[in-house]
Design a protein around this nucleic acid. Structure first.
Length: 575
DNA sequence: GCCGTTTTCGGCCCGACTGTTTTCAGTCG
């Protein structure tokens, strides 16, 4: 997969054009946009090229003929002539250096030209020798800032999991509100859109005393250091290794600011184009008419309404077709957390969970659920204390006992997260499967098969007639393990033909299926189960991450089976 | 270099913050 590398190359070309002739601003932007598109793309550009040729590449937003040719050249030869020519003139690791906050292409070039800095290692060396402060236009402060920037880069090696970042943001917001210096504080940015990983946090506040609010915000205990602090905007570095922007916004333009800062960028560009077409101008201060008179700014929803659009929830704002549907007032009503009636992927101490079945059930009752499915591991998962048939029989009896004891306060379904073996068969025999209310099947082992074999393994399992739900279908773990190679078109078609449900595993490291794959599966008309894969009682609360991911994939309540009550779902499994 | 309900040319976001500039360039989002 060369997507990331190609993205970096395009970014470096943009850096170099910026040095040579910064007036070519739109060409620079074109390279940057394409860099972002390609590096964030889930599908391998080489696959696109193989399936649809150069036209397939040109379908990517921001990629035209010129850049498509360059991608093709790189995929086929491993080289890009234009890039290599430029790099001979400027042998600078822009990709590494410009990750340092405050260091862009121009300053990086000056450091190279005047101090010979080519990469992070050189930068650290000249920082240590305090050489930078001697350069014209640089001073002691810029040198210190660069030093801090280098530390931050080393601390934050990648984007942070939403599951880590979101609770942190909520804690900061709570403290801001408790201070009474702000009357409103809301999360914006990619975390508001529930993107699986986030690069930073964006918090918008309304305050009568902006300076005091900024003072307070920069001193919250989560803050490690203050990167910049102004009258209306501060950026702080958090102890967890993430930067956080806090902006004070006037009350009267809060809605416009939310719309602007929730993003994403592509979504906003399109909305602003629509505003222009309708005779308005939209920015973070409001929606203005031709005379520059403010039409709406307090309420985000009203802005969309005036533009003739339905209201897309933040999770949908990725420019993946939601704007077009909003214009036609055909946006789906996305599933929400309150629609969820139960959790169908829950572990207990019978395999690798921390709590008993009864404790998990009590925790589910506290959440207002009507049912949970206990899905402990099967024997192949010996590292996770998986059950053999003998233990499984005892486990089934135990679930019966707890069901009796809880006396209808909740229904506990009997299941097991049954391993899909290398040949596509299941890790439990027919007798055990018959004792389950439903069968959840997952792949955990033999992950290094080729795509065709892996796909056959999954499809065979789906076609067996023994399976109800496929757990975490791609088996990826964010930042740790790539998705297993699957031809998802074949998998989803088989699932549709055999009425097999796809799981959205809401555990923040998994989020599997992810948003893009959900959208693809939805096209096949599949049903989904949003689960938590809980291993302790507290994990049951992770459901919101699964729901967020489902909303990013445009799912409605009807697409999700565990929005049904206990009676309906029990019947669904029996049939 | 990309793109198209202003369509094959002429647009393409700009405001906030910082440092060291005395009026602005660079960077960021």
């Amino acid at each position: 997969m060369e997507n990331k590398k190609i993205g970096e190359i395009f970014d470096e070309i943009a850096d170099i054009i910026e040095i040579e002739d910064s007036k070519r601003i739109f060409e620079i932007r074109a390279y940057r946009k394409a860099a972002l598109t390609v590096s964030e793309l889930q599908e391998d550009v080489a696959d696109i090229l193989r399936k649809k040729g150069i036209d397939g590449l040109m379908e990517l937003p921001g990629v035209g003929k010129g850049l498509a040719e360059k991608i093709k050249e790189y995929v086929e030869t491993g080289r890009m002539r234009k890039y290599e020519e430029l790099k001979r003139k400027y042998p600078i690791d822009f990709t590494g250096l410009t990750k340092v906050r405050g260091l862009g292409s121009k300053k990086a070039f000056r450091l190279y030209n005047e101090l010979g800095v080519r990469n992070m290692k050189d930068l650290k060396a000249v920082l240590k020798k305090k050489k930078i402060r001697g350069l014209e236009g640089f001073g002691e402060k810029s040198e210190e800032a660069l030093g801090k920037g280098v530390e931050s880069v080393e601390a934050a090696s990648s984007r942070m999991l939403l599951g880590t970042a979101l609770p942190e943001a909520e804690s900061i917001i709570r403290k801001l509100l408790e201070s009474r210096l702000v009357e409103r504080a809301e999360l914006a940015g990619s975390s508001r859109r529930m993107k699986e990983t986030v690069g930073d946090l964006d918090i918008l506040v309304i305050s009568e005393k902006p300076e005091k609010a900024m003072d307070f915000a920069t001193k919250i205990e989560e803050v490690e250091s203050v990167m910049l602090k102004g009258q209306t905007k501060s950026t702080v570095w958090l102890k967890i290794g993430l930067s956080c922007d806090i902006r004070v916004v006037p009350r009267e333009s809060f809605g416009a600011a939310m719309q602007y800062f929730i993003g994403n960028k592509d979504h906003n560009v399109k909305v602003r184009q629509i505003a222009i077409r309708e005779g308005y101008k939209l920015n973070e201060y409001g929606l203005f008419d031709k005379k520059g008179k403010i039409v709406e700014s307090e309420n985000e929803g009203e802005i969309y309404k005036i533009l003739g659009m339905g209201y897309p929830v933040p999770e949908m704002r990725e420019n993946r077709g939601e704007i077009e549907l909003a214009m036609q007032h055909k946006l789906p009503v996305p599933v929400s957390l309150k629609d969820i009636k139960g959790d169908l992927h829950v572990h207990s101490a019978n395999s690798d969970g921390a709590n008993t079945i009864e404790e998990m059930a009590e925790a589910a009752i506290a959440l207002g659920y009507g049912y949970i499915g206990i899905t402990d591991h099967s024997k192949s998962e010996y590292v996770a204390n998986g059950m053999d048939e003998t233990r499984f029989k005892k486990y089934v009896k135990e679930i019966d006992r707890v069901n009796d004891k809880l006396d209808g306060r909740i229904r506990i379904f009997k299941s097991a997260e049954t391993d899909i073996l290398r040949d596509g068969s299941l890790d439990f025999g027919k007798a055990a499967l018959k004792d389950m209310d439903y069968v959840l099947a997952s792949i955990h082992t033999s992950l290094n098969m080729d795509k065709d074999s892996m796909t056959k393994r999954m499809v065979k399992c789906i076609e067996s007639g023994d399976v109800d739900i496929i757990g975490h279908p791609t088996d990826r773990i964010i930042h740790q393990r790539d998705p297993i190679p699957l031809d998802l078109d074949r998998v989803f078609q088989a699932a549709k033909d055999n009425d097999v449900v796809m799981e959205i595993d809401g555990y923040p490291e998994r989020l599997d299926l992810n948003d893009e794959n959900i959208m693809k599966a939805r096209e096949y008309g599949l049903k989904f189960a949003i689960d938590t894969d809980s291993h302790r009682t507290q994990h049951l609360r992770l459901m919101r991450f699964g729901v967020g991911t489902a909303r990013r994939g445009w799912l409605t309540k009807d697409d999700v089976i565990n929005t049904s009550g206990v009676g309906k779902i029990a019947k669904m499994f029996r049939d």
